[in-house]
């Protein structure tokens, strides 16, 4: 189910502006990869190119290849809608659909896309996804209540349940804990290490301890200055990045000397 990601020399543009230059990465299936770096260095932008979500922003385009199990996401005839079904995403701000109940939020990927399933299949998906997101015990008695009535941490886990309900191969997380308190953050971090068994996970985070705790490999992004493109400076085992990085900039960043 989980798939590998191979990116070779990718440039990302917004209009004429080069946002990320020459990024290359190889992500093995069933691993957690963390992207760290200062604000504006292009790590979120790069993450979005992994399921073509950057195209939602006007002018967003790429040069280069992103291979998912060897298949180019930007090849001719590839439908971004199908890409996003395979590569799911969780956002910085929890964004459950306000018009839907908890139950309907979990199966939103099926319901909105118009796929027909019977009630029992949906019940199974809801239970499995909410259990997978460690939310089942907290909400099983009130599945028909609005999703927007949950706490911030619960809403974020609801969004993770929604993302895994459609059974993607890869799960992208864009700063999923930055708006959460430490207890909710811990719940999500535990969840990430459980999800790793089935999914390839890529997480953007500003919290270096979090990157060190949850990830197997870490990529450090940086930019030379305002208006300059972001670059991937170093990509290695997390333990090596945090103990003995090769690049000076990486060492400066993780030791808090800048950024």
């Amino acid at each position: 189910m989980a798939k590998s990601i191979d990116v070779d020399n990718l440039n990302v543009y917004y209009g004429d502006f080069l946002a990320v230059e020459g990024a290359s990465i190889n992500i093995a299936p069933r691993t957690v990869t963390a992207f760290i770096g200062p604000s504006g260095c292009g790590k979120s932008t790069f993450l979005r190119t992994l399921n073509r979500m950057h195209e939602v922003i006007p002018g967003g385009r790429v040069e280069g290849k992103v291979l998912l199990d060897g298949e180019d996401l930007y090849g001719p005839g590839v439908d971004p809608v199908n890409v996003r079904r395979t590569v799911g995403m969780v956002f910085q701000k929890a964004n459950p659909f306000p018009t839907m109940s908890i139950y309907d939020n979990v199966i939103a990927g099926y319901k909105i896309a118009g796929s027909r399933k019977n009630k029992r299949e949906f019940d199974d998906i809801v239970e499995r996804s909410l259990k997978g997101a460690n939310l089942w015990e907290e909400v099983k008695s009130r599945l028909q209540r609005p999703g927007a009535g949950l706490s911030g941490g619960q809403q974020q886990r609801l969004c993770i349940a929604r993302a895994i309900a459609v059974e993607p191969s890869v799960l992208l997380m864009d700063e999923p804990c930055s708006a959460l308190d430490p207890i909710s953050t811990l719940a999500i971090e535990d969840l990430i290490s459980e999800l790793k068994v089935n999914y390839t996970i890529v997480i953007v985070t500003h919290n270096m301890q979090q990157a060190a705790r949850v990830s197997d490999r870490t990529a450090f992004f940086n930019l030379a200055g305002v208006g300059q493109p972001g670059r991937m400076i170093e990509y290695d085992e997390t333990a090596k990045i945090f103990s003995n990085p090769t690049q000076k900039a990486t060492e400066d960043y993780i030791s808090g000397r800048f950024g």
Binding site: V83, R84, N95, F97, I112
Partner: peptide, 26 residues
């Protein structure tokens, strides 16, 4: 909010169904 549209796209929902099922009801 843009967030809701992006959440729907990220689930692999085509744009027209996102408008019909997420934007208009909201």
């Amino acid at each position: 909010p843009r967030d809701l549209r992006e959440a729907s796209y990220a689930l692999g929902v085509p744009k027209w169904r996102t408008i019909l099922k997420v934007v208009l009801p909201t």
